[in-house]
Design a protein around this nucleic acid. Structure first.
Lengths: 219, 219
DNA sequence: TAGATTGTTAATCGATTAACAATC
DNA sequence: TAGATTGTTAATCGATTAACAATC
């Protein structure tokens, strides 16, 4: 039970979670750290170290129970506490996330989306109400919003980020590609830089250089 | 000039590139490693180390020339050699990428998209022709395709990945959320696991734990 | 009990940071 | 020249891996 968990370990947790979900769907009941390591491209000892940051969930001489491990990792990630989220910008990307992304899997409830287009205001998409951007302020005063998903044009990013932060939104999931430099107090920003991902792939494709370390993911 | 560049360094290159683009737009002509470090949340010595992997681009007593550095980093990433790409699956996400993502910035030319829906086959989106999925095989035989962007349903992922790999597509940019376990020879897979990103943000939001290391990005 | 596999400590490896001589 | 700032080597730090005793 370590005092402070490193970011490296935290960023591996979702991967473990996905893997356990998969194993469970495949009706695998138990798995050893070495078998898991083989499937995930990790060393068995690293897996044991990782789990030990949180106390260790295994049984000596047996291995890890898949269902239990899935629940435990889910618990560490806090999936029991649902967070509320809104989407800012219902263009293609916003709509793609609203319609296809599994927010529930991440312990997040999507409660509304906002867009400047009057044409779509008042409609619903996949159960989520699309509201006029003009109503955002009022909405934030009336509802508790933990996370805002930023899928609007680059130009609106800085201002909107500040507005959201000022209204108590503590997490920004930022797809705009614009780095939010300004100090937003205790509001956290998780940047999704798709271009970084494609550029990295391109680097490895162009060079004769061989593949990256493990299985090349890393959201 | 190091023999082999670590994946950590490679994954920082796109961030440098973005930053230099920004500095250039702000008409900043030169910058020192310490000033750059301050803006990017990196230590000056790390920046100098990173650039030295490729020979070092600075001038002692002066700093780094922004335009030149941007071009140099672009060169390392291979932006001069354009790669060709196709999108598989023109649903919301596929369309969002086709219409909004800056492929050119990444040195990639999008030449076609494929979808099973006969309704949209033959149309164009943002200049990109949308073709019927049935024509994929023939298309691959007739065109050189470096990268396939996977934005189709999960169920089709494994089979399509194999097909693409067999037809010589060497890079898969995978948005399906499905891990492609199968061995695809020398085809590289870059996974974009959006759920990992949101789960990580959620972890930090829920816990009293403080923020991640730096500025919390990491595609 | 014997075998398996964890939890955990110790050893290794690599990445980041600091320091400083080289040089513009 | 004096000042600034890099390139690069050395020191530190942290993360991964190996090893093994504990225990199911």
């Amino acid at each position: 039970m370590k005092y402070r968990i490193s970011a490296n370990v935290i960023r591996r947790l979702p991967r473990y979670l996905r893997r356990f979900e998969l194993l469970d769907r495949q009706n695998v009941e138990k798995i050893s750290s070495s078998a898991l390591g083989e499937r995930m491209g990790l060393k068995a000892s690293q897996i044991r170290q990782d789990f030990n940051c949180f106390g260790g969930f295994g049984q000596q001489g047996y291995g890890y129970n898949v269902k239990q491990l899935r629940d435990d990792v889910g618990g560490i990630l806090g999936l029991d506490k649902t967070l509320t989220a809104i989407v800012i910008g219902a263009g293609n990307l916003g709509r793609a996330l609203i319609a296809n992304f599994d927010f529930a899997f991440c312990g997040v409830e999507l409660i509304a989306a906002f867009d400047t287009s009057k044409a779509i205001a008042g409609t619903r998409l996949h159960g989520t109400p699309i509201l006029d951007a003009g109503e955002l302020n009022e909405f934030l005063d009336d509802h508790h919003v933990d996370v805002a998903v930023l899928t609007m044009p680059k130009s609106a990013t800085a201002g909107t980020a500040r507005l959201l932060s000022n209204h108590g939104v503590r997490g920004l999931w930022n797809f705009t590609g614009v780095d939010i430099d300004a100090d937003l107090g205790d509001t956290l920003v998780e940047d999704v830089h798709l271009s970084d991902s494609l550029l990295t792939l391109g680097y490895y494709l162009r060079g004769r250089t061989e593949q990256p370390g493990e299985d090349g993911d890393k959201l």
